[in-house]
Computed example of a mutant assay.
Amino acid sequence: MNNLTPKKEDYLKIIFELGGKQRKVSNKQISLSLNVAAGSVTEMVTKLVSEGLVIHTPYAGISLTADGIEVAENLIRRHRLWETFLVDKLNYKLQDVHDDAEVLEHATSDNLVKHLDDFLGHPKNCPHGGMIPSIDGDYAEESYDLLADAETGSTKVVDRFVDNHELLTYLGEIKLNIGDKFTVVEHVPFEGPIKVKLVDTGKEVSISYNAAHYIFVN
């Protein structure tokens, strides 16, 4: 696929991250995750449909085709290996890593990716919890259960975050981390925050309604 621009690649990656391999993702989710206008999403999705990379079902949402999944997996592998390198080896803060990983990913040959993977010891997950496909395309399926949908009283573990700068900055501020175990205390009505209690410390944390749609839990 040589007609893939970096922008198209970003859309394929975010649709994959939001679960578009297995289910329908809404225009609104894509627009919020990429910080772009809803009209731009519609326009880009139309292009990706015409290229056979996504399927758009009116009123249901957007999912990836087999070709779209293959392209997205390859992009995700490159991006997340660079994120791992930048955080683990160059001490980047998690919320600052995305833009540089993005630039590096587009300029990386297959040979360089292989050497990077070897150098890092074949990591299975990136710093924000996303899986990294192996060179053969193998990976464990990710959780697509959203914190927003977790029932009051249930106990969950933070599995991963969508790779979005504002979200990661916000989560750094409220100190919510991958692997944190918590009990859902309350869903405040009218799109209010979700209150959770961390199991280890007993601390209560309020998580905004929007952010809860980009935090995946087990």
Rank of each mutant, 00 (worst) to 15 (best):
T183E: 13
L112R: 12
F182C: 07
N164T: 06
N111P: 01
S40G: 09
D145S: 15
V49Q: 07
E73N: 08
G39N: 13
K13A: 15
P58G: 09
L48G: 00
T183F: 07
D138Q: 08
I174A: 10
T65R: 07
V49M: 05
L167C: 04
D149C: 09
Y11F: 10
L34G: 00
H79K: 11
A72R: 10
F119D: 06
M1E: 04
E43M: 10
K8P: 07
E191Y: 02
E17R: 01
A66D: 12
K47V: 12
G179I: 05
L86I: 03
H106F: 12
V157K: 14
S63W: 10
E83P: 01
L48R: 07
T169A: 11
G130W: 06
I62D: 00
L171M: 10
K13N: 13
E141R: 06
L176A: 03
P127L: 07
H187I: 10
T152G: 09
N218M: 09
T201C: 11
Y209S: 12
E173R: 07
A60L: 12
F161T: 08
V36E: 01
T155H: 08
R77M: 05
K197A: 05
K28P: 01
L81T: 08
L168W: 15
K203Y: 12
V87E: 09
T155Y: 02
V188L: 13
L168D: 01
N35D: 07
H98L: 10
D180Q: 07
G153W: 01
L75W: 03
A38K: 09
N27S: 09
W82M: 05
V45T: 03
L104C: 03
I135L: 12
T183N: 10
G19H: 06
K181F: 08
Q95M: 09
T108H: 09
L90N: 04
K47W: 03
V49N: 06
E102Y: 14
K7R: 13
P58F: 03
V158T: 02
